[in-house]
Simulated scan of single mutants.
Amino acid sequence: MRVKSKILSTTLIISCVLVSRHRTLMNIFDKAPVVDKDAFVAPGASVIGDVLVGRGSSIWYGCVLRGDVNSISVGSGTNIQDNSLVHVAKSNLSGKVLPTIIGDNVTIGHSAVVHGCTVEDEAFVGMGATLLDGVVVEKHAMVAAGALVKQNTRIPTGEVWGGNPARFLRKLTDEEIAFIAQSATNYSNLAQVHAAENAKPFDEIEFEKVLRKKFANKDEEYDSMLGVVRELPPELILPSNVLPDEHKAK
């Protein structure tokens, strides 16, 4: 009886694991995501159905890109930051079919909602912004953090829009336009670091834990007495454009 009970418990645990398993890339209907081999999709993100992710783009932790009733296209070098939601519309009140199209070198900030709209190359969508059906954010335009952009709004090149509902605030400066491009490059480089860390095998991760513990506490006087020489662990080498300013000067 105990053996039967144990088998039933084990079967139930396995079933629960299978049912609750998270799939980062998931087919829906007859559609499957297509992700470039040089793109980074973080563990915990969900890329579902008819979704295309281009070279060097990054989909960060907690993001959902759900291409079930229409398609989502993400260009090259674009970053969609943590907890953002990208979805589509099969149709809206105007009867339009609305995929979501995100261009090249776009930055979409944390927790943004992008729904059935178009964000052109090198545009910037701030943290927590919401873009509703039919919105077009033109190249080199910026949506401010927390903005709500109403349906079918077009944000012209070189303008900043913000508020609820979003309205024109001012023109972008040349420095801000340059920042948009730099932001995309920074995230592309940072994604490479995260991809490398996530690709490490279990034994390497465990070995690094031991190293961190070994180098955590240093007492030079005690080490000298014992004749111990501690080597410094190697530093993480980041691309120069994601290093803090104090390291750039060195």
Rank of each mutant, 00 (worst) to 15 (best):
S5Q: 11
K6H: 12
S9G: 09
T11L: 15
I14N: 09
S15M: 14
V17L: 15
V17Y: 11
H22T: 04
M26C: 09
F29K: 14
P33S: 07
D36W: 08
D36Y: 04
A39E: 07
A39P: 07
F40V: 14
F40R: 10
P43M: 02
S46K: 08
S46V: 03
S46G: 05
I48H: 02
V53W: 10
G54K: 13
R55E: 14
G56L: 00
S58E: 02
I59P: 06
Y61I: 07
Y61P: 03
Y61G: 04
V64L: 12
G67Q: 01
I72F: 06
S73D: 11
V74I: 15
G75V: 10
N79W: 08
Q81P: 09
A89K: 06
N92Q: 10
N92P: 04
P99H: 15
I102T: 01
T107H: 02
V114M: 03
C117Y: 07
V119H: 00
E122Q: 13
A123N: 02
V125T: 05
M127N: 02
G128I: 02
A129P: 05
L131Q: 01
D133E: 15
G134H: 00
V137M: 05
H140S: 15
A141H: 10
M142T: 13
G146N: 12
V149W: 00
K150I: 01
T153Y: 10
G158Y: 02
V160H: 05
N164S: 13
L172M: 08
E175D: 15
E175C: 03
E175H: 06
I180G: 06
S183L: 11
A191P: 00
A199T: 03
K209Q: 14
K214Q: 05
K214Y: 06
F215G: 00
N217Q: 11
N217Y: 13
E220Q: 09
G227T: 00
E231W: 04
L232P: 10
P234L: 10
P234N: 09
E235Q: 09
L238P: 09
P244M: 03
D245M: 15
K250Q: 09
